[in-house]
């Protein structure tokens, strides 16, 4: 019969269209064309008057069955099409595509290491202090037991602006400036740029130091060891072996160099540590009584310890950087790694 054929044709038409449909709109269109108020099914039903009355119930039943079937098919096909796709767009969702965002900025590795050092020292109760980068000869040398002609001046070839005015070669002058202004007890640290007239594979004419100073009654070398061991462990990881060996700084006595065990070879000796198994990380010592006398502290009453470290060196050890000059070249291939 005609209408039976029509129904069958509708079904196959829908199947064909569904196979091509992608987007949500496609499914909506199909639904409207066949099942909408002016759709094919409705049109078919309008022809009921041409059907002999005795067949009408059968006809009604069949059309409704078909309608139901098509509804289900369209819904099912739409559901299948949606899965794995951005709803409504027909695009396949690819969550591995990069997110839409600006290029990220970066923070200089020296600033990052300085932050880390700062946090450790502030937890240990040290407070920040600052001083000028262009210093007088007095603060940079004289007050630190380095009179004119002292051999320690040879170690730190300095830049001069004019007689008596020098780019600071160390952050130690901040010690003197703070002690002149304040009475003990005090516990300070001073970060900043320092300058030495040196430029080769392992030296840049500018680098960063952090200076620490703790003065009070009863501060001893034992305290120096305890505090700096704690500092080294926090900076390089708990359980890092630390050793103290005698050294010389004009402004401390006794003076010490602090080493940590080489993390590359675990103390066995390798190229990084020059086969010694140890890596030097900071210099320290008990404040020389001459400094106390100079700032008006009584050395018989107060003792203290001071320490200083090079930030570039720490950063090189922590990040495995082998050329100090990279820090000031500011190449994005370098900066973006941090």
């Amino acid at each position: 019969m005609d209408w039976e054929q029509n129904l069958g044709e509708l079904e196959s038409q829908v199947t064909e269209l569904l196979a091509q449909a992608v987007k949500a709109e496609d499914f909506l269109q199909i639904k409207q064309r066949f099942l909408g108020k002016q759709g094919e099914i409705s049109n078919l039903l309008k022809g009921i008057r041409e059907i002999p009355p005795e067949l009408r119930p059968v006809f009604g039943q069949r059309v409704n069955q078909t309608k139901q079937l098509l509804e289900e098919r369209i819904a099912e096909a739409a559901r299948q099409a949606e899965s794995g796709r951005v709803p409504g767009s027909g695009e396949t969702l690819d969550l591995t595509l990069p997110g839409v965002w600006n290029q990220p900025g970066s923070i200089h590795p020296i600033a990052q290491v300085l932050d880390e050092i700062r946090e450790i020292l502030e937890d240990l109760g040290f407070q920040i202090a600052e001083g000028p980068e262009i210093e007088t000869d007095y603060y940079n040398f004289e007050a630190l037991n380095i009179p004119k002609g002292h051999p320690a001046r040879d170690m730190q070839d300095s830049f001069y602006i004019e007689d008596e005015i020098v780019l600071r070669t160390q952050t130690s002058p901040v010690q003197i400036r703070v002690m002149e202004k304040r009475k003990p007890p005090l516990r300070i640290y001073a970060p900043g740029r320092v300058y030495r007239r040196d430029m080769d594979v392992s030296h840049t004419p500018m680098f960063h130091q952090v200076e620490g100073l703790w003065v009070d009654r009863g501060i001893t070398f034992s305290d120096l060891k305890g505090v700096l061991m704690l500092f080294a462990e926090q900076l390089f990881g708990e359980g890092t072996p630390v050793r103290f060996r005698p050294s010389f700084f004009p402004f401390t006595e006794p003076s010490a160099e602090v080493d940590i065990e080489c993390h590359m070879c675990r103390g066995k000796g390798c190229r990084v540590c020059g086969n010694s198994g140890w890596l030097e990380i900071l210099g320290a010592g008990m404040v020389h009584p001459g400094l106390f006398r100079r700032v008006g502290y009584d050395p018989a009453e107060f003792t203290g310890f001071a320490f200083g470290l090079g930030v570039e060196r720490i950063a090189m050890l922590k990040f495995g950087i082998n050329d100090i000059r990279l820090f000031f070249e500011n190449d994005l291939r370098f900066l973006k790694q941090f």
Partner: peptide, 22 residues
């Protein structure tokens, strides 16, 4: 130096902020 025992001084130093502006 290895013979000297490490100690950890208490928080004897004062807590006044040295310089608020710094």
């Amino acid at each position: 130096y290895g013979r000297i025992q490490p100690t950890w001084p208490g928080l004897r130093a004062d807590r006044r902020s040295l310089s608020a502006s710094e």
